[in-house]
Design a protein around this nucleic acid. Structure first.
Length: 772
DNA sequence: GAGTTTGAAACT
DNA sequence: CAGTTTCAAACTC
């Protein structure tokens, strides 16, 4: 088999093949003497024997030279990037870097061939060869390629031809030429047709080349029939669920692949696919291509197969694009799949990962509690983003029955909200890129099989994006930075502080917070973290983000500003106040003056006049009368929610009950006690150091991720308030604090569950710092 | 949209 | 650690 040939040989073969392909196409299309000659059995035999094909056209020779100088990657780059370039699918591959790598060879081909179909065909053809060779020889080195291959496979999955070809190729990958011949005809028909016909070969090759891939892919391929016929979202969704294992495999592969290429992925793919699915109607078929199989192929590719892959690739790619993959950076060092796959065993110093995994675990309960690796990178989101994300929530709801999905949907909602908030502005920036992908959390969301088959629910659709963007008030959480002097490399920059790259919507100047400056960003971030390990920690801990806006206004108590504000003039009544901005009440950590935070003053009182919720205010007043601060009230609510299922994390950490819980409730044993104590202490405690003590989230450089104790898991408010006891202090900001067991929490099972929920719901801040 | 206010972040 | 400066968001007009 040609795959077995030496790398150099393979390259040459690829080049020659590429060169040859156009000619072959021509030959096939025109009955010239040459073509006749080629068609002769002898010629075919020779072709099969020799990896080096005779160069038939001079202009092709140029291509060869150019190709010969091109890097392996450029040569081996996924064919679909180019082939689909003019198709609807082209948007999937937004990876600029990748395309750049390819561009030289591609351009050369075009320059020489001057015929798009030919060039594409040659690329595709070349890739067939290159794929196996790459896999065989560089297996493990260029995982990226593997991932690309997986995509390629996706394309093929839906094609009826793919199966046929697959069968052909399974036994004999050698017959490129034989398969090429038919392809030539298709090529003339159109790029898509050409691609569709070509794809099968690649699939086969992939299967052979990579055992792992083969496994994962085969399942997908086997499903192709269903895809072909089904083509509806329901099927795709079911497929997704059914192929979780395969997806996981893919994920692993991708993880490895993605490790070294921050920019490699285009997050847009999954989204694009989803869009297609939404739009998938008869009209799509019309545009698919001249060949019926093309249409099917495209659909299948776009929908099911990719949908399956989507969660993985999407998430990963999304991370790359939007999120500062600081974890990834660290992860790059260890490419072993097990490390990444096993969240619990992650050697990553950053506790956030662990916490995130937990959260995701709950979210992805359907996956058997197996935390998805994808989750890890998704952490680069500022908690505030989540909090603010709720602003966008309503929009989402309007769009669809999105909210219809289960109780644990709330978590998804949260994620989506976040995604929306972060991405709403940038939808158009890069052709076809969907903002959702940009958001790590969004990725997480995507990663979770969406039970809701309704494509309309897909928040990723362009339509939805548009809608969201149209909602002016909704993008409170979606705002981008406007930095002018900080280069978006300081915490002044909201984007940078949130661990995300600046995007088009940003009005920043001289921005360095972009993927292209990843190194700088990482270095800067690391520097800042070294100075303050919690610099990138969420500023506000919210017990629940899934509440509606109205509710969110009420919330606060359950959440607290971690470090506390320092307001002097705003009375914590304006967004200048971080606490207020975060929708949380001030805490003892605040050094504010004249605090009138409507969400709760640092004294633990809620200004009645300013409180939005009258009922709440009344309750607060009652509580105050009873000797309890207003905060406990909210805490009670929170508590009521806590016992909920893990899925409830989603939503419902926020007090949704309008009825005040019985005051007799031993809340104190749990949150209440904590909170109350906090406020009580508050008067006397203005701690400077207290900050660190109450910092909630798992610290970035968590040394003992597994040591989650109640406090670690609890929102700062709870923890901080749990007891004035300073024992809560963390050993170091970066490490989780080891706090003495709180009998209150420990004694209550319900509380435990609540703790868990809280922990899960609390995104740990993204630690960009690579492993220390 | 420009200018002011504000408080966090950064610096000394 | 405290004071000062820088910065960008929030706010006002």
């Amino acid at each position: 088999m040609k795959c077995g040939m030496l790398k150099g040989t393979c390259e040459r073969a690829s080049s020659s093949m590429e060169m040859e392909t156009p000619d072959r196409t021509k030959a096939a299309s025109s009955s010239t003497p040459i073509s006749k000659f080629e068609d002769s059995p002898v010629f075919n035999y020779i072709n099969n024997l020799s990896p080096i094909k005779p160069v038939k056209s001079i202009h092709v020779a140029h291509t060869l030279s150019s190709l010969s100088f091109a890097s392996l990657q450029s040569i081996f780059t996924s064919p679909h990037v180019s082939s689909l370039k003019e198709s609807r699918l082209h948007r999937r591959h937004q990876n600029l870097d990748f395309s750049k790598l390819k561009s030289p060879s591609r351009d050369a081909q075009r320059a020489s061939a001057n015929e798009r179909a030919e060039a594409e065909l040659s690329e595709n053809f070349g890739e067939r060869i290159s794929i196996p060779s790459t896999t065989v020889e560089q297996l493990g080195e260029d995982n990226k390629l593997t991932f690309e291959l997986s995509h390629t496979l996706d394309y093929e999955c839906g094609s009826p031809d793919s199966r046929t070809n697959q069968e052909m190729c399974l036994g004999r990958a050698r017959n490129f030429d034989q398969q090429v011949e038919p392809d030539i005809g298709n090529t003339q028909a159109g790029p898509e047709g050409e691609w569709a016909s070509l794809a099968p070969d690649t699939v086969d090759l992939l299967i052979f080349s990579s055992p792992n891939d083969a496994e994962a892919f085969q399942g997908i391929i086997q499903r192709s029939p269903g895809l072909e016929t089904g083509l509806d979202a329901a099927i795709s969704s079911s497929l997704i669920r059914n192929n979780i294992a395969e997806l996981q495999k893919m994920q692993l592969l991708f993880q490895v692949a993605s490790g070294g290429h921050p920019e490699m992925g285009d997050a847009s793919e999954s989204i694009e696919i989803k869009h297609t699915r939404e739009d998938l109607g008869s009209h799509d078929l019309e545009t698919m291509g001249p060949y019926p199989c093309d249409g099917l192929n495209n659909e299948a590719e776009l929908h099911d197969p990719f949908a399956e892959m989507k969660p993985l690739s999407n998430f990963q790619r999304g991370l790359r694009r939007r999120c500062l993959d600081f974890e990834m950076v660290g992860a790059h060092h260890h490419k072993s799949l097990p490390d990444r796959s096993n969240s619990s065993s992650l050697s990553h110093p950053e506790g956030m990962i662990a916490s995130t995994n937990l959260m995701l675990t709950s979210v992805n309960s359907k996956r058997g509690g197996q935390p998805s690796m994808c989750i890890l990178p998704g952490i680069g989101l500022h908690l505030n983003s989540l909090a603010s994300a709720k602003d966008c929530y309503n929009v989402i709801n309007h769009d669809s029955s999105f909210s219809e999905t289960h109780s644990n949907m709330s978590c998804q909602e949260l994620l989506q909200q976040t995604v929306i908030s972060n991405a709403s502005d940038r939808e158009a920036d890069e052709s076809g890129n969907i903002f959702v992908e940009d958001n790590p959390l969004a990725m997480v969301l995507l990663d979770e099989p969406n039970p809701n088959p309704n494509p309309n629910l897909n928040p990723n659709s362009p339509r939805k994006k548009r809608r969201r963007a149209e909602h002016p008030g909704d993008d409170d959480g979606c705002k981008r930075c406007n930095c002018k002097k900080s280069k978006c490399l300081k915490l002044y920059c909201e984007c940078f502080a949130a661990g995300i790259y600046c995007m088009e919507p940003c009005a920043c100047q001289d921005c360095f917070n972009k993927p292209i400056h990843e190194d700088i960003v990482l270095a800067t971030r690391k520097q800042i973290e070294s100075r303050n390990p919690l610099a990138f920690a969420p500023k506000v801990i919210r017990a629940s983000d899934s509440v509606t806006e109205n509710e969110s206004m009420k919330t606060p108590v359950s959440a607290r500003h971690k470090r506390g504000c320092n307001c002097k003039k705003s009375s914590c009544l304006k967004k200048y106040c971080e606490c207020y901005q975060g929708g949380v009440g001030c805490s003892i950590n605040c050094r504010c003056e004249g605090c009138r935070n409507r969400f709760g003053t640092k004294d633990g009182t809620v200004p009645v006049a300013e409180a939005d919720c009258e009922a709440e205010d009344e309750e607060a007043e009652k509580r105050e009368k009873a000797g309890l601060d207003a905060i406990p009230l909210r805490t009670e609510k929170l508590k009521t929610v806590l016992p909920g299922t893990p899925s409830g994390l989603s939503g419902s950490l926020l007090p949704q009950t309008t009825v005040p819980p019985p005051k007799s409730k031993p809340l104190r044993s749990s949150f209440m006690a904590t909170v109350g104590s906090t406020y009580v202490l508050n008067s006397t405690q203005k701690l400077g150091k207290a900050k660190a003590e109450f910092l909630l989230p798992p610290l970035p450089n968590l040394e003992k991720p597994q040591q989650f104790n109640a406090e670690n898991e609890l929102p700062e408010i709870l923890r901080g308030s749990s007891t004035p006891n300073v024992n809560i202090k963390t050993a170091s900001p970066s490490s989780k604090r080891v706090s003495p067991p709180h009998g209150e929490f420990g004694s209550s099972p319900s509380l435990r569950s609540g703790r868990r929920l809280i922990l899960q719901s609390i995104p740990s801040f993204p630690s960009l710092t690579p492993q220390h």
